[in-house]
Design a protein around this nucleic acid. Structure first.
Lengths: 209, 209
DNA sequence: AATAAGACTGAACGAGCGTTCAGTTAAATT
DNA sequence: AATTTAACTGAACGCTCGTTCAGTCTTATT
């Protein structure tokens, strides 16, 4: 699942230790990155929070961008790991979709700083790694696509075959905007009301009238 | 309208010259910023493209962030200036909304690099200036709010009073995602199809069934 | 106990950057 | 023609930051 763990080289031999240390690095870095941004965070700060010397830090990564990859990967897989097991495709497609939306939107609310960070710092990644993050987002989209497809097949939803993908993206973006437009939305709506209203408007669109 | 022009100090006396030179600076900077990002673009590069020395550049701004403000302000007002005069509130609210959406979405398509840039670099601004950019986005949202309100008043649309703001935000974000999700959307849809589909789904939501 | 290997340390390096300022050029004023 | 003012120049300053590497400490091996 996680490309980065395989691809980022390390001079340390012990595989388990690499995993432990990298988790520590991510934990230290994620807060700093989210608070200050990638460019404004220094290796020195990360090392200090990580509780080890700069030299040690560099035993587990090659460059600063490696840390960014680890962090982006961590955020993405956190979201995915928490959504995927909770989502179930039942006979009642409308209910399945409602559940999936609620779960996803609540996680966005909880991790809103992380979501915003992903939106803003993906561009700091190299082309190769950016593609990987997009891939990861497509995997998330697929979860909603599948629910929609299932609903169409059994006649609960009415969506043109070609527009299922677009609908899935709409569902995701309407969740993510709760984070990146919080300066406008969270003044005027509670999360509960937001989920309720957005869910209703999405279902209105795709339910047979 | 434009805060920045008033607020950014300059050591040059001639007001017209300031305006001319700042336009040149923005022209030089906007391309570099969009292509390389704010942090990766150097003052030296901007000055070189600007065609003048670093010293001269610093006669018209105080810091690098000033250039970012000028650029963000330029992008925002470009979008607004091109949408606002084209939007008209007619008796046929549905048609007014369709027109406004099409105009806005087409401008987003045209300026997609700039839109993405705004999304990604707003965070590099100070708190004060970030608030100003958000204000500018709220002004755009108001354009759609007004059309929606008008449509509700004359009975064309059916939206809960409280949800008009949210609907306006949805319309804007569903446009903007054409830019920031282009890696997925522009592979699968043409702009025309995208506008058509999104417009239809928005109107479905708010038209009385 | 001696040796080797692996993990850790942080001062030092060097490149790049935003910003300044002493000085030059050109235009306006007297 | 002399002087003042405004606009422009770019080398130089000072600082920060990512990265390295010679050396130390700890643990495992013989």
């Amino acid at each position: 699942m996680s490309i980065s763990k395989k691809e980022i080289e390390s001079s340390v031999k012990d595989k388990d230790l690499i995993e432990i240390r990298r988790k520590e690095i991510v934990n230290a870095a994620v807060d700093l990155f989210v608070r200050k941004g990638f460019h404004r965070t220094t290796i020195r700060e990360i090392a200090q929070k990580f509780g080890m010397s700069i030299g040690t830090l560099y035993e587990y990564i090659r460059t600063k961008e490696d840390i960014l990859i680890l962090v982006c990967d961590y955020i993405n897989s956190t979201v995915r790991m928490r959504v995927k097991p909770s989502v179930e495709i039942t006979k009642d497609s409308a209910q399945s979709l409602k559940n999936a939306i609620e779960i996803y939107y609540r996680i966005i609310d909880e991790l809103q700083d992380y979501i915003i960070f992903l939106y803003q710092e993906t561009k700091s990644l190299s082309h190769e790694n950016r593609k990987y993050i997009f891939k990861s987002e497509e995997d998330m989209t697929e979860i909603f696509e599948n629910i929609l497809k299932h609903g169409v097949e059994q006649g609960s939803f009415k969506i043109d075959e070609k527009n299922i993908l677009l609908t899935a993206h709409n569902i995701m973006v309407q969740g993510q905007m709760w984070a990146f437009r919080r300066w406008a939305l969270q003044k005027n709506y509670t999360l509960e009301r937001y989920i309720e209203t957005q869910t209703k408007s999405i279902l209105d669109q795709i339910t047979k009238h």
